[in-house]
Simulated scan of single mutants.
Amino acid sequence: MGRFISSRKTKSKIIKTLIYIFLFFISSIVIFPYLWMLLTSFKPIEEFFTYPLKWFTKNWTWIQYAGVFEDPKFVAALRNSLLVSSIVTILSLVLSIPAAYGLTRMRVIGGKSMLIGILSSQFFPPMIFFVPFYIILSKFKLLNTIPGLVFAYLSVTLPICTWMVANTFQNIPRELEEAAQVDGCGYMRTIWEVVLRMSLPGIITAGMFAYVLAWQEYIFALLYTTTSAAQTAPVVLFFYLGQHQIDYGRLMAAAVMLSLPVVVPFVFMQRYFKQGRGEGSVKG
């Protein structure tokens, strides 16, 4: 009996070790391009194509980042990306929270069907919206403007945020709201003190999704903007891929800078993201 238990423990350890090796291998494949991008951005340009390739350089330099900051188009595009992403995130939450509350906590006829319809809208390929959005933005003179981009991005982020927040609200027992009202809390105070406070991780997760989607979006920005007045950073980043020559130094430095506004908030809000991802998942 003891030998059988020992054999099972050994087998379990071997399986865990193999799983860890597999996960390490997959993680290395995923992390490698980002690590190479980061290290290359600090290399002098003459070391980009040395053979054999070197991971680290003895001549660390900030010249690539200086070149990016000296590019007025990229600086303007970075500012536009921050502005558009912030507005889209705020509007997505401001609009999705009351919509999700109404569909899940109030007696709305067809509320569940409406939620399914909201989620189903994301199954359509984005290409079918390119021409209709272009016509709408052109008619209202919103092409090549920040409000036009915000409108286009909301068509993607708002349904996702509504679905995520709605599923978070569904995990909160109604008895808690009823108990708060019995204790004397008004309707709005109950929503604020009970529902929203308990849903904070899910709301933060929805906001992070909206922010990341708006920050990295490329196709809408490419189609609906033509000048630096509204072009975002992903579009301008593509310009470093010249027709006859690629500016690898600025390309790597700009790519690192575009990654930071996504990575840094995620690191500090990872606790909320893990908790909110579970609360905002589809219930079985």
Rank of each mutant, 00 (worst) to 15 (best):
F42S: 11
P159C: 01
L222W: 11
A179T: 13
E47W: 09
V264K: 05
M106V: 04
E217V: 13
I26T: 14
S138V: 02
G148S: 13
F130H: 03
R105C: 08
G2D: 10
Y211C: 10
R250S: 12
F74G: 07
P44T: 13
I116G: 00
G186V: 02
I97C: 02
S92W: 07
A180W: 11
I45N: 10
P234N: 08
G117W: 00
S228Y: 02
A206Y: 03
I90Y: 09
I90K: 04
V282E: 01
S121W: 05
F220G: 04
A152T: 13
K58S: 15
L223N: 07
S199M: 03
A206R: 02
K141I: 06
N171A: 05
L93W: 03
K112L: 00
F49Y: 12
W192E: 04
W60C: 00
A99E: 02
R250L: 09
I172C: 08
V256L: 12
M1R: 09
F74D: 01
C161H: 02
F169V: 01
I87K: 04
I135M: 13
C185D: 11
P147E: 02
T226L: 12
I136C: 04
F238T: 12
L196S: 08
Q216M: 09
L23E: 01
Y51A: 13
T232S: 07
F239D: 15
E193K: 14
P201N: 13
N59W: 08
P44K: 09
F49N: 14
T10G: 06
N59A: 12
Q181S: 11
S81F: 07
H244D: 12
W215D: 08
K58C: 00
L35D: 04
I160R: 04
L18I: 14
R79Y: 14
V94T: 14
W36A: 11
P201M: 09
S120E: 01
K112Y: 03
M164T: 14
I90N: 06
I203W: 06
L142M: 15
